[in-house]
């Protein structure tokens, strides 16, 4: 049985038609949201063209939550049913989500350079986004440290759940509560609320499709590809073991 599974996944199984369709759709969608954001939406009067990065910056942040959410779902179902497929989904979620979160940080820094006059500042929002990246980097490091595959899947399912809960709680604590008890941060740190712009109909027109794309099509397509990659990795590992074990 094991033997057959190795061959099945190694015999470079062609991409399912649905995946190919999703890939094409996601590529086209990304191209058209770029057109919307770069050319159709009007230039911001105060900030100039750099404001356009927002059409990727914000959707990437929320898209990361689709992926991290998939990690929680995958973890829960793995613990419940014990099927390896759900663990692969959980891992794919972490990697895709981490990539999105890094895109979010990077685009934010590019935007902040001209607007805030600095690449980075220890604003609570920025800090919490960085914490999110570090939490999932910790996930990957922990995952690499567990040799027994069954044990790795089980333990990482649990950690994926805690990582998500702690990221949500940290975001909640950092963002919502200071605003509710301190409507304006005392001493008005110079960057606070600096660089805001109005959500005009032009902005919404460019933002909404992009947000939708990053929330659904992009993470799902990327995770599916990552899932297939995980299958191949496992097949390669099995082959290695077979060769070593004789």
């Amino acid at each position: 049985m094991t033997q057959r599974r190795i061959h099945a996944s190694l015999a470079a199984s062609p991409q399912p038609r649905l995946l190919r369709a999703l890939t094409i759709l996601a590529t086209l969608g990304f191209a058209s949201t770029l057109v919307l954001g770069l050319f159709v939406a009007g230039t911001d009067i105060q900030q100039g063209p750099v404001q356009r990065i927002f059409y990727i910056h914000m959707p990437a942040f929320f898209g990361a939550f689709t992926a991290f959410g998939a990690t929680v779902l995958g973890g829960l179902i793995y613990l419940w049913r014990g099927s390896e497929a759900w663990d692969r989904i959980a891992l794919a979620g972490v990697e895709v989500g981490l990539a999105f979160a890094l895109i979010n940080l990077l685009t934010g820094a590019i935007w902040a350079r001209p607007i805030w006059n600095t690449w980075w500042t220890w604003d609570p929002r920025l800090t919490s986004a960085a914490v999110m990246c570090l939490t999932y980097a910790a996930y990957l490091m922990l995952r690499a440290g567990i040799e027994n595959p069954q044990r790795r899947r089980r333990l990482m399912s649990v950690y994926g759940i805690f990582a998500f809960v702690s990221v949500l709680l940290t975001l909640f604590i950092i963002r919502i509560v200071p605003d509710t008890i301190h409507p304006v941060i005392v001493g008005a740190s110079p960057q606070n609320a600096q660089g805001s712009f109005e959500a005009t109909s032009g902005v919404v027109l460019a933002l909404l499709p992009s947000l939708l794309l990053w929330l659904t099509l992009m993470p799902i397509t990327l995770m599916w590809h990552r899932y297939r990659l995980a299958l191949r990795q496992e097949a390669v590992d099995a082959l290695k073991l077979k060769l070593l074990g004789g």
């Binding site: 570090l134 990582a163 940290t170």
Partner: peptide, 10 residues
């Protein structure tokens, strides 16, 4: 420490 520190941030 790597596992615990991010998770006990709240």
């Amino acid at each position: 420490p790597i596992a615990l520190l991010p998770v006990c941030l709240p």
